[in-house]
């Protein structure tokens, strides 16, 4: 719809002012990442730069051993996001498209599980993980038990995130016309085919949106990783940022540079998927 000129100018005014406030910290970080610590620690962060270089980036990449940690991160995030979406969409499909005895109970279980704080469950979880043996497979389960393994990390992220995703997907699937299933059933399509070939393709926007969000969340998590993995090399990328902090001294400019490297993948994914992302998160908003 068209908007009159003056409100439009006003809106830009408001947004620009706000955007500046939002950008100050970000620009401050980018600016800092190009300057040496010795300079900002004496002149402050709000000062004219004497020297700017990529040294901090190089330093962060090497010291954080980021190449290695990126590999671990991809091996964690991709399966975790896929599994989370698969599991939550299955549950969402079952509770939103069928009437079943435990329908609401199940949805409540997942929704309420979504509210639990991770700190409140970590100690028993660690003890459970300590007691479940796994075959020792290099990279996948170096430790020979669920604790310290990539599998364990994928599973807890999946279990924990599936609460939110089930909730969102169930809402979304409820808005799909019921006739779809009925027609399919008359055609003799099995439940799995209804799920996989009819409902899932229609849910794609919501899945894309959730994939973007979940990618950022699981990618940025360090709580589960640090609590459940004790070998430095097996930790995902966020932890290599922590490795840039020393016992006492931390070169904050290197941390800023490292953070920029680490944030790039999530930002790029957001920029690429932005349209689907916004479109897909409609969360079953009523049409009219």
């Amino acid at each position: 719809m068209t908007v009159k000129r003056w409100p439009r100018v006003l809106a830009h005014f408001f947004l620009i002012a706000l955007a500046v406030v939002w950008l100050v910290p970000l620009v401050g970080m980018v600016f800092t990442s190009f300057r040496p610590y010795a300079e900002t620690s004496i002149d402050g962060f709000f000062s004219w730069p004497d020297s700017m270089s990529f040294d901090n980036f190089r330093n962060a990449w090497d010291r954080g051993d980021m190449g290695q940690h990126f590999v671990v991160t991809i091996a964690l995030v991709v399966p975790a996001v896929a599994l989370t979406l698969l599991f939550s969409s299955m549950v969402a499909f079952a509770v939103s498209r069928f009437s079943w005895r435990f329908n609401i109970a199940l949805l409540m279980l997942f929704t309420a599980g979504n509210l639990l704080p991770p700190q409140a469950i970590i100690q028993p979880l660690f003890q459970i993980y300590l007691r479940i043996p796994l075959p020792e497979i290099p990279f996948i389960s170096n430790s020979g038990e669920l604790r310290g393994s990539l599998i364990g990390l994928i599973l807890i992220n999946t279990a924990f995130q599936s609460g939110f995703c089930t909730f969102v997907l169930a809402n979304y699937m409820k808005t799909l016309p019921k006739e779809l299933n009925e027609a399919a059933m008359v055609d003799g399509a099995s439940v799995w085919r209804q799920y996989w070939q009819i409902v899932m393709p229609l849910t794609r926007p919501a899945l894309a949106a959730l994939a973007t969000l979940e990618f950022a969340w699981i990618y940025n998590d360090y709580f589960w990783a640090v609590a459940l993995i004790q070998q430095g090399d097996d930790l995902p990328i966020t932890s290599s940022l922590r490795n840039l902090s020393g016992e006492f001294f931390t070169d904050e400019n290197v941390v800023a540079a490292g953070s920029l490297i680490v944030v790039l993948p999530t930002l790029i994914i957001y920029l690429i998927l932005r349209r689907q992302f916004i479109g897909g998160l409609s969360l079953g908003g009523t049409k009219g």
Partner: peptide, 18 residues
């Protein structure tokens, strides 16, 4: 389709909560 995700969710979220 519901049992597998629910089992995982209960085992790793609700049981530790208890």
């Amino acid at each position: 389709m519901t049992a597998v995700p629910s089992f995982l969710h209960i085992a790793l979220v609700w049981i530790p909560a208890i």
